[in-house]
């Protein structure tokens, strides 16, 4: 086990060990895989000693270190209202409190499960992934970061260091909802993160991101376009919710059928848009 103290040392360790190395931050995904022998890394690189990965700064947008925990998103006062509330809501839904104190944003993204809760709100906020590697830093829009079920653009010699969220502007609101049979320690049947920005009573930007309805989290682009430039009436929101269903390509499994998941996309899109709108207007909904 390698215990680096900086991002530079992490990159050096990855350069030395390549694909044999596996990074561990919170360990909530990695440890069960190690225990079930699904993963046999030559060496584990522990990120818990890298302080810069744990920083969350809010100044004209957000910079979220990859090792910021779900619990920190849940409880950070700067995320408690308006534009970033959806992100806080997604953090609050991960695992249990014992898991949220460990599980990290970066881990959730790099694990790249279709059902990952913290990804839709970040997609809806147009977040960018900041990646460190032997050739320095590169930035990739989060929507391009995940390439398939549990696969990402990360090279074997790279690590995700930060999520960079652009300033959403003064009248922006976000919300995240998921459906699960039980509230805690469950995995989303469908998750929806919505974000709207307003100017003079008109929606200038709308983002709707869906989880657990495709191999990767996806944007509902037709629904977003139908809202932009419009006043967000309940009718328009309902139309957008219907359009969002078209972006979903769900599978049937033990958690839900195709039909049920499509129904949930419509319901959760309507609810998150309605809540996001209220928050963009300064409401505490």
């Amino acid at each position: 086990m390698i215990l680096p103290g900086s991002v530079k040392e992490c990159v050096q360790a990855l350069a030395e060990h390549g694909a044999a190395a596996k990074l561990v931050a919170g360990g909530t995904d990695l440890l069960p895989q190690l225990k079930n022998h699904l993963l046999k890394p030559g060496v584990v690189v522990d990120l818990s000693g890298v302080a810069t990965l744990k920083k969350l700064t809010a100044d004209k947008g957000l910079r979220i270190g990859a090792a910021v925990t779900a619990r920190e998103l849940e409880r950070d006062g700067r995320l408690a209202t308006g534009a970033y509330r959806g992100l806080a809501e997604s953090g609050a839904l991960v695992g249990s409190v014992q898991v949220r104190h460990l599980a990290t944003v970066g881990g959730n993204i790099c694990n790249a499960a279709p059902s990952a809760d913290m990804i839709p709100p970040l997609l809806a906020l147009d977040a960018e992934a900041v990646i460190a590697g032997p050739r320095g830093e590169r930035r990739v829009p989060l929507r391009d970061f995940i390439t398939g079920v549990r696969t990402t653009v990360l090279g074997a010699d790279e690590l995700l260091v930060e999520l960079s969220v652009p300033d959403p502007g003064p009248h922006s609101g976000g919300a995240y909802l998921r459906h699960t049979p039980r509230r805690e320690l469950d995995i989303a049947v469908v998750g929806v993160g919505s974000q709207v920005t307003l100017a003079n009573g008109v929606c200038t930007k709308a983002r709707i991101a869906l989880a657990a309805v495709a191999p990767t989290p996806v944007h509902a682009r037709a629904a977003e376009r139908a809202l932009e430039g419009q006043a967000l009436t309940p009718q328009r929101i309902e139309e957008a919710a219907k359009l969002a269903v078209e972006a979903a390509r769900p599978i049937s499994d033990q958690r839900g059928s195709v039909e049920f998941r499509r129904h949930l996309v419509r319901v959760l899109t309507r609810r998150t848009l309605t809540t996001a709108l209220a928050r963009a207007n300064g409401g505490q909904a």
Partner: peptide, 27 residues
């Protein structure tokens, strides 16, 4: 359970409740 689902292994790490079955000792 050994996978962070049951809470029987809960300890405090720097004052916060964590599932100790998901923490590598060296962490």
């Amino acid at each position: 359970c050994g996978t962070g689902d049951c809470g029987a292994c809960t300890v405090h790490l720097d004052g916060k409740a964590v599932a100790s079955c998901l923490v590598l000792a060296l962490q």
